[in-house]
């Protein structure tokens, strides 16, 4: 049981990076970006490509981030320049990347057991905590900058961003690149963790990421101190622990996808219903002014 929980926490940390990426598109930009289904395995395959070519693991992992960010540009061009809807743009990028991913190493499964990884010199969980902490701190700092706030404002109200003299599309591009970069980085970490890159490793990954984000938002809902990034990480860990407990209780791994969907439905339903309740309550609060 203990090792099951530890594995769940380790995977939760990896998915925490994924969830932070998806937070940028789904929550901050209000952009339902499905490209993550393509960029997650892309990160894994890019890592495999470079590690097989003899590059050090850390550099190969960082390269996965940059290639993922590049994939974000594709979704941006489809959506902003070619005026295709957000959802379809993401699905098209994802479909495109499915073939690209198979081409990167010319096979659908690459074993990485015999190669170096970022986990070689330290306890896996320590490495993961360090990486996740660095990404979280950087993202928190970024969201406090002028550009960070404009990214949030773009998701909120593009008219305002334009009225500030800024091109809101620029911030969509930044958001999509950053998001897909983080998703690919998470994919590269997962490939090293499980010891292989596989073209099917991302099926349903957007739902998992969303589940994490939504769980994170629901837990400690009224705590204002908890940042979006912290919530995404906690959400991903809780999601993985719930999955581990479900398997421990005797559910088969093939039921996990259904469990993901049910978790999303349950938390969303809970959120929406209790939101109505809060709005009802807040009407009674007196606010000074007009």
């Amino acid at each position: 049981m203990n090792s099951l929980i530890q594995t769940a926490i380790e995977q939760g940390l990896i998915f925490g990076v994924l969830a932070m990426g998806v937070t940028i598109t789904f929550k901050i930009l209000d952009f339902a970006d499905m490209s993550a289904e393509g960029t997650f395995p892309m990160g894994a395959f890019i890592f495999a490509k470079f590690i097989l070519a003899g590059m050090p693991p850390l550099i190969s992992t960082l390269l996965a981030f940059f290639f993922g960010a590049f994939a974000g540009i594709i979704t941006y061009i489809l959506h902003v320049k070619m005026k295709i809807s957000a959802l379809l743009s993401g699905i098209l990028t994802m479909t495109l990347l499915y073939s690209v991913n198979l081409r990167i190493n010319n096979k659908s499964n690459v074993g990485l057991f015999n190669y170096d990884s970022i986990f070689d010199n330290m306890e896996v969980i320590i490495v993961l905590i360090i990486i996740v902490a660095i990404i979280k701190i950087l993202m928190d700092l970024f969201l406090k900058t002028e550009i960070g706030y404009l990214l949030i404002a773009t998701g909120d109200n593009e008219t305002l961003v334009k009225s500030l003299g800024e091109d809101s599309n620029k911030y969509k591009l930044i958001g999509l690149m950053l998001s897909n970069g983080l998703v690919a980085l998470s994919g590269a970490m997962m490939a090293q963790y499980q010891g292989f890159a596989d073209s099917n490793m991302a099926t349903g990954i957007v739902v998992i990421a969303l589940a994490s984000v939504i769980i994170g938002e629901t837990i400690f809902k009224n705590s204002k101190k908890l940042k979006r990034t912290t919530r995404a990480i906690i959400g991903a860990i809780i999601y993985k622990v719930i999955g581990a407990i479900a398997i421990d209780l005797g559910l088969s791994p093939q039921d996990l996808k259904a469990i993901s969907a049910i978790i999303v439905i349950a938390f969303l339903g809970y959120n929406n219903l209790s939101l109505n309740f809060i709005q009802f309550k807040s009407k009674k609060v007196k606010v000074k002014g007009v």
């Binding site: 970024f142 406090k144 900058t145 002028e146 550009i147 960070g148 706030y149 404009l150 949030i152 404002a153 998701g155 909120d156 109200n157 008219t159 305002l160 009225s163 500030l164 003299g165 800024e166």
Partner: peptide, 27 residues
């Protein structure tokens, strides 16, 4: 004319920077 999910302070700070260069400084 506002960004609803940001605070009053954050909104007004954004408008105070109107048409200047937005960069990686703290807002």
């Amino acid at each position: 004319g506002v960004s609803p999910s940001l605070t009053i302070l954050e909104n007004i700070s954004l408008s105070d920077k109107k048409c200047q260069k937005f960069g990686l400084k703290k807002l």
